[in-house]
Nucleic acid binder design. Structure first.
Length: 255
DNA sequence: CGTGCATTTCCTGGTT
DNA sequence: AAACCAGGAAATGCAC
């Protein structure tokens, strides 16, 4: 089972990232049936069929795509739970997803629901969706190597909304596209970083928490509380912080 | 409903 | 003077 997932092929990235493409467009677009002229629905890619009509193979292909694209830990996923059709997949509740794949399940559920409502535009939404995906993947245990499936399950309640400030800061440091020069590594190895645009950082954090009253003054107070818990360590320079021993996921060689 | 955690808000005072 | 830093105290929102 795992082998079939690991060895099947994906569409190249460029093929499904057109944000303007609807399900109808995708379905009728010949580009999605490039190599096989007389394909049946069973032979088509999952990307060319609405999730409700997915075959078991489509479900597998989708799972593989998600694992690959969002660095989900396949160890967290009970693949036998997903040996089902698209119709059955779509009827699964979030709880059932979590039961089948822990925090990865919560994430997969999130992706599926968005795909069902938005089609592939979901994968290329430059706004919230993209940040949501990234944050979802990075803030939970998904990107950490060597994580045990039990750990994933124990974190199954972790979600975007519960993402902590230090994780938000960490993820910003780790994603240059979102960062926009707001944060900068001062010493990558030691986890020392500088807040370059304090106002922008506060604004972004405020957006994340849906709080337009957020300021750097208040954000920095929250950061200072991290000194006590070892998430951050004090650095005696303005706007400079350092990850402490209880912060994880920021080290280059451990990503 | 109560409790605890993680901020958020506010504030006084000190530093760059 | 503006922008930060240090923390105390209390309030808030949320999950359990």
């Amino acid at each position: 089972m795992l082998d079939s997932v690991a060895h099947s092929t994906f569409l190249p990235n460029a093929s499904f990232c057109d944000p303007l493409m609807s399900w109808t467009d995708l379905f009728s677009n010949e580009e999605y049936y490039p190599a096989f002229e007389h394909q049946t629905a069973c032979d088509s890619y999952w990307t060319s069929v609405h999730p409700e009509y997915w075959t078991k193979r489509h479900v597998w292909e989708w799972l593989q795509f998600c694992c690959d694209q969002y660095k989900l830990d396949a160890n967290c996923i009970s693949f036998c739970h997903f040996n089902i059709s698209g119709l059955q997949l779509c009827s699964m509740t979030q709880e059932e997803f979590i039961e089948a794949a822990g925090v990865c399940g919560e994430y997969l559920y999130f992706i599926l629901q968005n795909m069902r409502s938005q089609g592939y535009s979901f994968f290329n939404d430059p706004e919230e969706t993209k940040a949501t995906i990234k944050d979802y993947a990075v803030s939970s245990c998904l990107k950490t190597s060597g994580i045990k499936s039990q750990d994933c399950h124990s974190h199954s309640r972790t979600s975007l909304q519960s993402s902590h400030l230090w994780e938000f800061v960490r993820d910003l440091l780790l994603s240059p596209e979102e960062n926009c020069g707001i944060l900068e590594w001062e010493d990558r190895e030691q986890g020392i970083f500088r807040v370059v645009k304090s106002e922008a950082l506060a604004k972004m954090w405020g957006q994340r928490k849906r709080n337009d009253r957020m300021t750097y003054e208040k954000l920095s107070r929250a950061l200072r509380y991290y000194y006590k818990t070892g998430i951050l360590e004090r650095v005696d320079r303005r706007l400079v912080y350092k990850f402490g021993k209880n912060a994880h996921g920021w080290q280059e060689d451990k990503l």
